[in-house]
């Protein structure tokens, strides 16, 4: 059994802000974000790395925060759904696309999709249809049937390609 003690400080940057909180070595990054830092926009759907609801950007790479220990993220730069809006507070282009295409219903899986798509479009603004589908196939949604999520992704891609 793990030693429940042994908490240490974990220092990282989340959405541009330096954060410090205590974590025992076994604390998942998802639980650290949600329950230690109060960033509950990152959701937990399966805790075994399949559903993708907990996806965050860790040093720019999309990762499942349920498969990472908080202590592994020491010194890292994280982005979560709370960091997707523009500096003016307006919804970002990916967020707007999901709203306009009705690409969400209950909204529980949505943060994971937003992060996965953001990661793709930041790397490949003109992503192909195949790349879009591939990037989003790692996230499960039980409400929408994906059609409108893909429509939102295409709209966000078209905008990103235009900006690029």
């Amino acid at each position: 059994m793990a030693d429940p003690g042994g908490e240490r400080e974990v220092r990282l940057v989340v959405n541009g802000v330096e954060r410090v909180a205590a974590a025992e070595p076994r604390l998942l990054l998802s639980d650290f974000l949600r329950h230690r830092l109060g960033l509950t926009g990152t959701h937990v759907g399966c805790e075994h790395g399949v559903c993708g609801a907990c996806t965050v950007l860790l040093d720019g790479e999309p990762v499942r925060s349920c498969l990472v220990f908080a202590v592994q993220a020491e010194g890292a730069e994280l982005r979560t759904v709370e960091g997707l809006a523009g500096e003016d507070g307006e919804l970002g282009p990916v967020q707007r696309a999901f709203h306009e295409a009705h690409g969400m219903q209950c909204g529980f899986c949505t943060p994971g999709f937003l992060i996965s798509l953001t990661a793709l479009l930041e790397e490949r603004p003109g992503a192909s249809e195949e790349e879009l589908v591939d990037a989003l196939s790692g996230n499960l949604c039980r409400c929408t049937g994906y059609a409108n999520i893909l429509a939102a992704a295409r709209a966000a891609r078209d905008q990103a390609a235009e900006r690029a």
Partner: peptide, 18 residues
């Protein structure tokens, strides 16, 4: 357009575990 979207898109939804 759905009224409920904006909070959810910002990660400001309130589910039981939140």
């Amino acid at each position: 357009p759905r009224i409920e979207d904006e909070r959810l898109l910002r990660g400001e939804g309130r589910f039981v575990d939140d």
